[in-house]
Amino acid sequence: MIPPSFAYRAPASLKEALALIDESGDDAKFLAGGHSLLPMMKFRVSEPAVLIDLGGVPELQGIREAGDRIHIGPMSTENEIIGSALLQQKCPLLPEVARWIADPQVRNRGTIGGDVAHGDPANDHPAVMLALEADFVLRSSQGERVVPANEFYFGTYFTAMEANEVLAEIRVPVLGPGTGYAYKKLKRKTGDFAIAAACVLLTLDRGICKRIAITLTNVGPTPLRASAAEQALTGKAIDDAAVENAAQLAMQICDPAEDLRGDKEYKTHMAGEMVRRAIRQALERAKEAK
């Protein structure tokens, strides 16, 4: 539980942070809230020689509305996400998800940027980002590129981000008034990761499902998008049989890692169950909004 020694740098601007990562090379890591990185360092699973603390970089803070999008600074903590009046109004899914993450202590330090950038399939935000069709703005000293969340995750701890890039902004859509949303997470206890979780976003048009996104947490090496389930529901009335069908289709794409929380069969079934519950809640919310 004791990390090897490392150098600590605390840049005061994004430019400085990017210059530092360039000069430090592959052995450097950005430090956000530290609640994924530091435990890994204490177990000596990750042994960066240099930590570049993003805590003092003003460009990475703040949550702003920009037309029909909301731009979220990656250094926003989970508690800031929960407390954001803007998000509560325009993208209430995110504060709801943040409440499911860890415990109040972790949420005081852990950031939404760290949560999506880490590439841990157990983290909750990534699947939500897929459902929201968020965009990630990646910055390096060479410039900026925008990667859709749906093209960001390659494998466990393996994302589209290069070692010299920083996640500079997260862009999510403002959710229209009729949008139903839900995040259903099965977890063992407060502060625990998901055994399985499902995110659902949907809009209805006279009782017919116009658009739906169904994504899954912690049942594969990356967050999963249940495209077949989405297609099966799009353009249909969502009745019990349709929900069941979607759950079964979602289960088919699951490939969870076995651990003490459950084997593949259990976790797969729980993903299905979370899909059922999330669709039902999203549906209710969509109807209420009318």
Partner: peptide
């Protein structure tokens, strides 16, 4: 009685029929 083992009992006994 983790949820996973309890569920397995339920599932094996067919007590989770909808």
């Amino acid at each position: 009685y983790k949820s996973s083992t309890v569920w397995k009992t339920i599932h094996t006994l067919n007590l989770d029929q909808r």
